[in-house]
Write a protein that binds this DNA or RNA. Structure first.
Lengths: 102, 102
DNA sequence: CTGACATATGTCAGTCTTGACATATCAGCT
DNA sequence: AGCTGATATGTCAAGACTGACATATGTCAG
């Protein structure tokens, strides 16, 4: 956010600050969330690149369409392990994961 | 394993083949295990580099010494998420994780 | 408009993971 | 031998995650 926009928001009565500050996240918590966000993006990109439907990915993953939807929606009920397995099932490699995290 | 050793083992009555073959792991399962192994090593290295005891790491992690021991022992009850949180708590950064996975 | 397909959202019982605790082992020190 | 700090292992109740199912919404070709 540039300084000009910050000033405008402030003038309009908005407090400014990071999401992490607002939610009072520790650096470790922020880093974990960052990882989950990146993996979510990786799954979405990898799946669409391969023209897999959520149903098709669910089959490869041994799961269900609704869970794949939750994975891609960033649902809090989705574990990091499921995110990683979904990445692999949608065709990503370990090195793709490493790149996504770097 | 080089070809010479393979031959020697075969001659001695040992069947050869990867652990993954023996356990009938799919490539995705192998890749997930590889990640867990690498993170386990990362936690061990990061903790010892910072001269943290398992008790000290457990405190930073909001967990217990026995769970830290299980993390480092590759206990099957340890989730990928806990491995990642332990990595951060022992001082690793997101980029350190990316490097460990690459 | 309808049917077919893709995705989203809510729920829930069964399974997995958790921190905590007890206890054991091991090494270094006096 | 005893003591202390560090690490390992087993157990368990509580909480988190899972696949499956039902259902809703959206899109688009016929």
């Amino acid at each position: 956010m540039d300084a000009a926009k910050k000033k405008r928001l402030k003038g309009a009565g908005w407090a400014t600050g990071s999401v992490a500050e607002f939610l009072e996240l520790t650096p470790e918590e922020s880093a974990l969330i960052e990882i989950k966000v990146r993996l979510t993006e990786l799954v979405k990109k990898a799946r669409s690149r391969r023209h897999l439907s959520q149903v098709a990915l669910a089959e490869r993953l041994g799961s269900s369409q609704s869970r794949v939807a939750k994975i891609e929606a960033g649902d809090p009920s989705v574990s990091l392990e499921l995110l990683v397995r979904a990445s692999f099932a949608s065709g990503a490699t370990r090195k793709d994961l490493a790149r996504a995290l770097a």
